[in-house]
Design a protein around this nucleic acid. Sequence first.
DNA 1: AAAGATTGATTGCTCAATCTTG
DNA 2: CAAGATTGAGCAATCAATCTTT
Lengths: 140, 140
Amino acid sequence: MDAERWDEIVVLQARVEQEVGTALQRRHGISLSDYRALRRLAEAPGRELRMQDLAALTGLSQSAVSRLIVRLETAGLARRDLCPDDRRGVYGVITDDGLHRREEARATYQTALSEALAEAAADPAFASVATGLGHGGPDG
Amino acid sequence: MDAERWDEIVVLQARVEQEVGTALQRRHGISLSDYRALRRLAEAPGRELRMQDLAALTGLSQSAVSRLIVRLETAGLARRDLCPDDRRGVYGVITDDGLHRREEARATYQTALSEALAEAAADPAFASVATGLGHGGPDG
DNA sequence: AAAGATTGATTGCTCAATCTTG
DNA sequence: CAAGATTGAGCAATCAATCTTT
């Protein structure tokens, strides 16, 4: 991986994330980070995650997650819960409304993502990197 | 490309960009976007680009580039120039100081990028995607 | 003293509106 | 009226500092 290729990936990702994020915001009123957090919470055992784990799974900082969960809480899509055994810890828990919203947004996310990637692959500037991304590591 | 894989790429990129950006900021006092803009300007014919072209090459919006060039101008790394034939257009032009700064930062960028990617490849959570990114499209 | 989470300050981005030129 | 760039407002991210619990 050289810097040139990395820079292409970065620009490609900016474009794709932009499109998907706009679609989520317009149709479901949530941001990309909101959606991804909801998804991680929904799939977590007990529908809950510690702030740190949510940060690791979303690629955000601790403080970003702290504010993200406040947003979700305000929207009624998640709530915070204290950790019983370690009272420094805080769980983010997805609510039924949150689960519902995530289900609604799911198809939008996947469709918008596919479309954005297809557009990128059709653009000569990204054709190579867009198709290359699809291929996995040593396993194929 | 499925959504799961894309999400991994997004998290991987967040981590790598974070590390590279921190290195650039600490050692050279410029942000990732600054560095990438300087690079594009430095390699452009005449060391200049129209705002729109710079936006396309960096993956930023028009307004983001407009503010970016103000930052670079304030730092003495670039300047703006009017387009003689179409007076709506504005060129960003890299200065000698800008060229010099970019040369200084170049090794930092490439080294930090390599290290961050190597770290990611060593992390079981990213091993597959990190190595997979290295492979190009149909050409290999 | 260290770990987990939150808060204050700042940065850099986007959208929408505006200004200028074609 | 359209195109290119800038500006105002708002949002979401970061860092550094702080507070609580271990």
